[in-house]
Design a protein around this nucleic acid. Structure first.
Lengths: 249, 249
DNA sequence: CGGAGCCTTTCGCCTGACGGAAGTCCCGTT
DNA sequence: AACGGGACTTCCGTCAGGCGAAAGGCTCCG
């Protein structure tokens, strides 16, 4: 998030300014941005002027920079973001009606699952995962579904990287995870790893694109631990419905 | 949309590549992008490599470029986009429950109203305005509400520009529009101009930020022409609710 | 086989970006 | 008032890095 290799060319520098913004820091001053992006103050200032002029960023009365509407608009054009969301929405709504549990849709970006839509009952007071938030693949049900159907080579790379890094959700037993992934592939359903996520249990199913490749995953939260099996069919049904809806693209 | 001044510096060039993408053209080839951005082919190619490497864009199997997840994620951080949406959602849902008509939330960006959220009943088969879509301010109820409360100087500039340009929704009588805006300010409600939008009539109310400035507008579609007056109070109530929710920011 | 599109890479010139330094503004402090 | 620190803005000379012409792949099609 903070500084990722000083950026050697103009484009990289401009992107490093954008990269300074994340969920933890959606509002930044010039000085903070220049530090996080690894740029000198004048350079950051000039790039920020360009970006605000274009509408990618906005500057409020206090001089603090925020993400601008223009980026929001651009973001709505992402085929794996809002466009996918649009196609999936009716099925997600059906799934929510049927289960009355939190429903989510996510896609894979590198080693993370990115949440593209989330339906939550008004009564649900739990932490509401924000759209655009991302979690390590092995930490959630959708993540496991996506990881299980990711390209062959990627899985091993991911496991190796996870073993090297020591994150809060580090895999304790890679072989156990490997077995879980195999099971996901045979059953077509993923259940989040209770060893990793103590509380939030969820059941997920893969969504396939027109070419048969897995492009997303749907899941519902399992409130009562015993009801995981009962929720499976509904999740699978929703996932198949979305897959079919993606067909005529 | 297409080419807007050839872009004289590096940052501008990179942004012109992003600007090549819009709702009408969310999927572009290298050649199209280079043309739309006004860049030579090698330059466009290099910039696109940078952008895809960073995740701002993605390239599918056919070599076609799309908006990437990274931009979607960034877009979700926009205070006047998804963040505002999040705060407003409960009130929009209430408004939808009360009226059972399409409900929308929009903010102003220059001379356009940008839609940030839209709730539509599943039964509503009408054209679903996409999130991130924008319309000229005088073309819709939310737009009029935003225009009426925009900074003093802006309104005249806008009217002058509208008179000069000849768009499909061009204002026929600026004085009539001026009177309408005055009425919006006194009543606190905007009704879309039937001379401009023949079919879709809507009632809108302004949403104010903590400092009292109008930051957004809510509206509901009026299906039966006579019921505009009846819907007013509900819209106003929702707008006030959102304004209050924005208070402790 | 040849040509047309489309994409990719190379390369040398030259422009436009970089950051040090100085200037401005706004605080809170002495 | 005068001072000092912090944050932002502007200027400008140097030079690194970007630009596009040109040439090289690749694929499709007649």
């Amino acid at each position: 998030m903070t500084l990722q290799t000083p950026a050697t060319n103009a484009a990289g520098r401009l992107l490093s300014v954008l990269a300074a913004f994340d969920r933890a820091a959606p509002a930044l001053t010039l000085t903070e941005i220049s530090r996080r992006a690894g740029l000198s103050l004048p350079t950051a200032h000039r790039l920020l002027s360009e970006l605000t002029g274009w509408g990618a960023l906005e500057r409020d009365a206090d001089g603090v920079y925020h993400v601008g509407l223009r980026l929001f608009e651009l973001g709505t054009l992402a085929p794996r973001g809002p466009v996918l969301r649009e196609a999936a929405l009716p099925f997600l709504e059906d799934l929510y009606e049927a289960t009355r549990e939190n429903v989510q849709l996510a896609v894979r970006e590198d080693g993370d699952a990115v949440y593209v839509e989330r339906l939550a009952g008004r009564s649900s007071v739990g932490v509401r995962t924000r759209l655009g938030a991302h979690w390590p693949l092995h930490a959630t049900g959708v993540g496991l579904a996506l990881l299980a159907h990711a390209p062959a080579g990627f899985q091993e790379t991911y496991l190796a990287a996870e073993l090297a890094a020591f994150t809060p959700w580090t895999v304790t037993d890679p072989d156990r995870l490997r077995r879980m992934l195999a099971q996901v592939r045979t059953t077509g359903l993923a259940v989040s790893d209770r060893q990793v996520t103590e509380d939030a249990l969820s059941v997920a199913a893969p969504v396939r694109g027109p070419d048969g490749a897995v492009v997303a995953a749907v899941s519902v939260v399992v409130r009562a631990p015993g009801s995981a099996a009962a929720l499976g069919p509904a999740v699978r049904l929703a996932a198949r419905g979305i897959s079919r809806a993606l067909g005529p693209v």
